[in-house]
Design a protein around this nucleic acid. Structure first.
Lengths: 205, 205
DNA sequence: AGGATAAAACCGACCCGCCGGTCGGTTTTG
DNA sequence: CAAAACCGACCGGCGGGTCGGTTTTATCCT
């Protein structure tokens, strides 16, 4: 179990510090936005110094990019898992929507980072933001095409429809995020599900 | 027709300059975003100096707010007019969607300012952005409720549905805005219309 | 064990470009 | 000639990033 000595692997402790910084950056970004967060703030939140932060990360952008990537990855994986647990096409689509909504409902910071900060971070990130949106609506598109192939929904422009679904979901969550005294996001699920399913020709069960 | 002399009205010329600055700010904000636009840039684009700009506007935020307001007002009025021209509930909803899409298609800068920059401008504007979204989805909600009252669509949560519609529209336009070599936005109209109408139980004509 | 030593990790004062906003002065206008 | 409009040098704070130095950790030698 003893680690190899000669390699330059980041030594347990260093990794821990790195994660500590990442965590601090995550919550700071989510609370104050990318541009309004200073490196000093991140350093303080991570109980270290600016120099310490710059030892682990070359730039502020790098940190944000890594955060976006891993956060999106985690969510995508979670959705994929939830969808894989279902076999019936419509149930799969439902599982996807439900998982996103429930995850965001339980992790406001995640939602803020992905849906608000990513957009507000400036032109420098618009490519990755676009890619992220494309990624998620791409997932939806696949589910829709499956359902089409299975014949449970009629032929339609899956690409545009997927974007519309993603946009609808995005807006519902974003409004909830910015609401002063938000209700429970989960409560929107039944309505949203009904609207989205109807939009592809699936009426109430 | 000769103007009153004693009043402190802004004298033709001054108003022109003011508009000139507003125009310059509008296009600069739309091209580079609120935070990445400096007052010097605006001044230069308006063929004047920073001091000149500050003679007409107290702060940078003020300019942006006014731009957001008037732009949103113009669009809302245009939509209202288009909707008023129709009598049949479903045709009214269609007119609303079509107008927004066509307007944005013809004025990318308008779309950018309202849908991208407003969000990217930072926490300071999130209230007004939220208000703007609420305004437009509120309009949609009214149309939906009319249709409901007329009995052409079933009872449903108009508020949430309206948000979903707005989100879908928003996403479609936003993707188009950020696309490198975008197609024609108008082409998305038929699909989007079908999706949205189906989502409230109205099947193809 | 207990130096010796070098690399890793960390610190925070400092640098510097940027930019919103100011202000004293000049030009234009009515 | 006074008020309105305009100019642009300047101020001040902020914040990303740097850098010389200090502390901590891992490794090797005796």
């Amino acid at each position: 179990m003893s680690p190899k000595r000669l390699s330059v692997e980041p030594s347990e402790k260093s990794r821990a510090r790195r994660d500590q910084i990442l965590d601090a950056a995550f919550s700071t970004f989510a609370h104050r936005g990318f541009r309004d967060t200073s490196m000093d703030e991140i350093a303080t939140a991570a109980s270290t110094s600016k120099g310490g932060v710059y030892f682990h990360f070359p730039t502020k952008e790098t940190i944000f990019r890594e955060l976006m990537r891993t956060t999106a990855d985690r969510l995508a994986a979670k959705v994929d898992r939830a969808v894989a647990a279902e076999t019936e096409p419509i149930a799969r689509a439902e599982a996807g929507i439900r998982t996103v909504l429930l995850t965001f409902a339980g992790h406001r910071t995640t939602a803020r980072l992905l849906l608000i900060d990513a957009v507000g971070a400036g032109r420098a990130f618009q490519t990755e933001t676009a890619l992220m949106h494309a990624r998620f609506s791409g997932m939806i598109r696949v589910y829709l095409e499956e359902a089409q192939a299975a014949g449970v929904i009629p032929a339609l422009d899956a690409e545009t429809t997927a974007r519309a679904w993603f946009g609808a979901l995005n807006e519902i969550v974003s409004r909830w995020l910015l609401d002063e005294k938000p209700g429970r996001l989960e409560d929107s699920y039944p309505v949203l599900r009904a609207v989205l399913l109807r939009s592809v020709g699936v009426s109430e069960e």
